[in-house]
């Protein structure tokens, strides 16, 4: 029983991180219909920027995260402007390949700057607390609380502000949004900014319990893709729910099935979903 609760908590933590990454991916997909393969690189750089701020400038953990959000967000905007915007009318194969190009570049860049070593990030929240005989580390609690806080803020932003509703409007109907006077260029840039920011938050929160290295984004972003297919490409609630579902499935699978193959669970899930529904779980019917 204790093991189960422990694993459920782990699943919640992992799911929080997945949800944040998947949210960024799904936002960009909703607006531009690009599966941004470079999103994993944003996540990875988010971890490195936070780490560097803390080590090099001795900044406080929170301040480092804020800087990381800004830097990665701007990087996202830059990506949109320099690469995806020029390719918006190209055949569908092109933006994917371009995204791969960016991914390769950013990974090599990270390796050049920080080396290929696995780094650990220290956290001011290393305490272990004990509730009903189950141990939790503060950092893990922080990940969960932080992720939920960010999701609530994102929800409020999208629902309650004009800019946020512009994003929603554009994801539903790009031409329509353009017609009612929404500056689609600005919305696209903003979306990339938010997407990058979310990746930076996810990486910075999870880095202390994982490690920071150039390839750290690979698996996470692959799983995020599985999640947004699970939850419906472009769907925001879908990304959140999908993230937690995968988190729980994985941590339970690791305990009760096989730890070696736990990373396979996500992909097998995807294979099963797409075998049954080639357009994803929540595809709109017809055209």
């Amino acid at each position: 029983m204790e093991l189960l609760v422990q694993q459920l908590f782990n699943g919640l933590t992992v799911g929080s991180v997945y949800s944040l990454v998947a949210l960024g991916l799904t936002l960009v997909y909703g607006i531009l219909h690009i599966p941004n393969f470079a999103h994993g690189a944003l996540y990875m750089l988010g971890g490195y920027v936070t780490l560097t701020m803390m080590l090099l400038w001795g900044l406080n953990y929170w301040l480092a995260i804020v800087i990381s959000i800004l830097v990665i967000g701007l990087l996202g905007v830059l990506m949109e402007r320099l690469v995806f915007h020029p390719l918006r009318k190209a055949p569908p194969i092109h933006d994917k390949i371009a995204a791969i190009g960016i991914l390769l570049f950013l990974e090599a860049l990270a390796q050049l700057i920080w080396g290929a070593d696995y780094r650990t990030m220290s956290t001011p929240y290393g305490q272990v607390i004990n509730i009903f005989g189950i141990t939790f580390t503060m950092q893990r609690i922080l990940i969960n609380v932080g992720a939920i806080f960010v999701m609530v803020m994102l929800y409020l932003f999208l629902k309650k502000t004009f800019v946020g509703s512009a994003i929603i409007a554009m994801s539903q109907n790009r031409e329509g949004a353009h017609l009612v006077g929404i500056n689609t260029n600005k919305v696209a840039m903003l979306t990339f900014m938010i997407s990058g920011g979310l990746a930076a938050i996810a990486a910075s929160l999870s880095a202390p319990i994982n490690l920071v290295f150039p390839g750290m984004g690979h698996l996470v972003v692959l799983k995020a893709f599985v999640i947004i297919i699970l939850g419906g490409m472009g769907s925001i609630p879908g990304a959140i729910v999908g993230g937690y579902i995968l988190g729980f499935t994985e941590s339970l699978g690791a305990t009760y099935i096989s730890n070696d193959y736990k990373d396979l669970i996500a992909f097998l899930l995807l294979v099963i979903i797409l075998s049954i529904k080639p357009q994803g779980l929540f595809a709109k019917g017809g055209h």
Partner: peptide, 22 residues
């Protein structure tokens, strides 16, 4: 895989590649 198209096919095969690797 071929029942899926475009993005889905790319993501699907990306995952298939990863499964083969794992």
């Amino acid at each position: 895989a071929l029942r899926t198209k475009e993005h889905f096919f790319a993501i699907y095969t990306l995952c298939v590649g990863y499964i083969l690797y794992l």
